[in-house]
Design a protein around this nucleic acid. Sequence first.
DNA 1: GCAAGTTTTTGAAACGTTTCATAGCGATCC
DNA 2: GGATCGCTATGAAACGTTTCAAAAACTTGC
Lengths: 344, 344
Amino acid sequence: MKRLTILDVAERAGVSVGTVSNALNRPEIVAPKTLASIQAAMDELGFVRNAAARQLTGAKSPAIGLIVLDIDNPFFTEVYRGVETAANEAGYLVVVCGLSGDPTHERRQLRLLEEQRVAGILATRVGKGNSRVYSQMRKRGMPVVLLDRRSASRNQCSVSVDDVAGGRLAGEHLCGLGHDRLALVNGPRDWSQCADRRSGFLTATDGAGARLLADADIEVEKMTIGAGEAAAHHILAAAKRPTAIFCANDLLALGVEHALIAAGHRVPEDFAIVGYDDVAFATMAFVPLTSVRQPAFELGQRGAQQLLGEATDEAHKHEQVVFEPELVIRASTGAEVEANVPAS
Amino acid sequence: MKRLTILDVAERAGVSVGTVSNALNRPEIVAPKTLASIQAAMDELGFVRNAAARQLTGAKSPAIGLIVLDIDNPFFTEVYRGVETAANEAGYLVVVCGLSGDPTHERRQLRLLEEQRVAGILATRVGKGNSRVYSQMRKRGMPVVLLDRRSASRNQCSVSVDDVAGGRLAGEHLCGLGHDRLALVNGPRDWSQCADRRSGFLTATDGAGARLLADADIEVEKMTIGAGEAAAHHILAAAKRPTAIFCANDLLALGVEHALIAAGHRVPEDFAIVGYDDVAFATMAFVPLTSVRQPAFELGQRGAQQLLGEATDEAHKHEQVVFEPELVIRASTGAEVEANVPAS
DNA sequence: GCAAGTTTTTGAAACGTTTCATAGCGATCC
DNA sequence: GGATCGCTATGAAACGTTTCAAAAACTTGC
């Protein structure tokens, strides 16, 4: 199948290639009659312009990359929706790269994105040992905006949520309910979100004179439902049992709750539970989850806007946006709230 | 920032552009010494080859498009993971397009994908009035594989799950438990999946002499938790109440269950519920959901493989793969199974 | 040390678009 | 009726790579 080019269109419409190009890019400068005949020629031929050739002459790629840690988490799905919305509004496509956790793999994906000369990259997480790769990319002129993580440098955009504050909210809530023997089910501490949530949590509990039990200070590798279940068993096996558990995300919390209830314990009577992210399913749990809500959609949307700003606006100023988290109280902490009432 | 080209590399390494290109594409034919010096030059310069120029000379785009209906549904997230896995294995990127439901919007995205000359497109759903757009694209040589929907034509690849069989499984299970007044909470019937699940369900119930109550034959616009809650209220308001409810996906089922329980009813004693998709959260529900499982990951993976086959293999044969669904029985239908026991 | 091979490198053409300086063409004005 | 002006259309150069026929540089064997 011979490839259809602007030249075929020109020939068919009886004009020069330059005019066809003008019709495509600056229709206002071509005579209405000419425009119409070019339009007709394109339709009849089924012409679709070639972005590669276009890019070669200076046009920017209409795509951005989104690096996501785990799409299994509905939180990131929501972030994606925000990104997609903002990108579409600006006429951009979104290339989603789901990290498998393998840094080599991540590097390969980044390399492909860079070869494509995408307009920019949104990164929710940087694989071990790959931060140099990112900084080199940035040096070469590729805009990179951090998503859900605050940039350490003033020279890079980032959109994040205050995780220290989130951890504090959880801690204060539990301590306020009188709990003083606490458990923490956290993700990898070298992930700044987890470290921050922990430190906020500790600030609050220390302030209230409560204690994070050493046996119940758990760090899991992957923040999944399954890992939460395992963590619950670990907690039940401890010498001294906590009365409240803070989980660094809702998947962990759902797993913890599920395992505890299956083992015959009551939530919140025996164990109060606080999750993080406030995913849609938190409400649907056996005992609806109290959770620290993050504005996931806005996170993604704002991040994409910043990225596109950096990519297209000469006068772009770097900026570190930080959203505030918010505690949503439900039955799993037994505060005086609706137990399982429909949302509507 | 001046753009770095193969020519800069050539100059630095003291060779011609042709040699650099060879080093990049057929390293085995260039002398080891030369190769090394070119490598060195690239590293020092931080050269990244330009995919656009490459494509222009005939190379295929290393990207495929994935059109998804609603990413909010964990089922599609899982499909995505399958696609991503297969794509990565083959060195491809995945451009995800989340349909907002607006057909114009869909057309714009498709146009962009086609301009990019992506290697192919995986479509889980075709927006209203856009099927012509797809067939024209195919005529122009763009491979399109249907995902989660069976192709009507022998000339197009598709990977799907037998929805009629799935509906039948649900119907047989409920009738087998003695239910004879049934409700159906379905999605838009012009979506073939929904129509098929319905027809399979009816086949089974008719065969067993059970009745789908007219008042409880519900069709919702969007298959979300919220819509499920609304449907439950509708069912409760009906003159004659069913004793069992089949929902066309798990989000609907979770919403139905949630609303019923909040209204003081018992599941499965008052209402048995069967969902569809068996998403991860089905287990975590207040009453764990009986659900028709679809091999989501395999669906995506196989679809991507087929697409890439069609895109790269001269001798590709079109094929319609159909997976079989499977019923996973849990507490929501009160069959003799574990109530809320941990998975592990 | 030379012919005949073999391995490696070269350089120009091609890919499909955009851009831009220039040319063409009417209309308008004295 | 000729100069001037504004609007349109033109066509060649440029973008960064790959390809491929041809040239150059080495190896052999004798």
